[in-house]
Amino acid sequence: MSEMLFTAAIARTIAEEMRRDPSVFVMGEDVGVIGGIYGASKGLLEEFGRERIRQTPISEAGFVGAGLGAACTGMRPIVELMYMDFTFVAMDQILNQVAKTRYVFGGKAKIPLVIRGQQGVGGGNAATHSQSVESLFLNIPGLKIAVPSTAADAVGLLRTAIRDDNPVLFFEHKKLYKGGKWEVPDDPEYMIPFGKADIKRQGTDVTVVATQFYVGEALKAAEELAKEGISVEVVDPRTLYPLDIDTICESVKKTGHLVTVHEACAVGGWGSEIESQVMDRVFRYMDAAPIRVGAKQCPLPFNPNLEKAVVPQIPDIVAACKRVLSK
């Protein structure tokens, strides 16, 4: 185990994979000299040179498409988007090309493409640079979606993503970048399979499903609720597609209560999808209707205090758990 920043763990994993496999390369804005504006490709240019660390103009549609083309021809590109909000600039490439190429060519083309970057609030970056957009991609067949909540999970999932022959959208969170140093496993083969949830805290009264930054917030809420004698189980699915619904359902069978928490808007977010799947499967074990905790249906404000008012806070999670328990 080593201690390092979240971004350093990402950069180290990319470097390890590039050493192992010459077909892995990085492409994106400012990924060279600066090492990515958040430092997630720091040091890569020095070791691998401009041929494999390719700096692009501000042209997301172009370089996501170029990544797809490279993937078709046998490379394993890692495309960094400076903000995952910019997926929308490249939406036709992602939705109509990346997600569908393997299918429309009858499986003849593999697409081992990773599109990664950070998202979320915490930077005072306002409405177009602070969104959590992972839910939107859940509605597109053909994409895998990873949403790590710790640097160790990010390392294990990123390696799996790079070695996967299908396109993966890899969402990191701004606030985790700023979360200080993390324990990270040093094994260069450390991998976490997709579709395998992690129970971050065991409990018996209510199941809280959260991802990314909100796993930590849910754990803090659980700590507070424990003082009141409420035992919270925190389940982190780690990937939204594929989704480990079995682990979530087993937890709900035990607790009878479900709360989902994410930073994306509550309306139409992945929390609704999970709640629907849980009710499909284990409705008879439920003691109350599940509750979604998510952002209000509102663009994200620039003002940090207003930003806090829009996205969920720990007291919101605590309140939701109590409400679902009729307490």
Partner: peptide, 22 residues
């Protein structure tokens, strides 16, 4: 609730007179 009904049935409890606190 579905869960309460399931448990009542398993335990053979007649819930028609039970006060609900949900």
């Amino acid at each position: 609730s579905p869960r309460a009904r399931m448990i009542a049935e398993e335990k053979g409890i007649d819930y028609s007179k039970i006060v609900g606190t949900g």
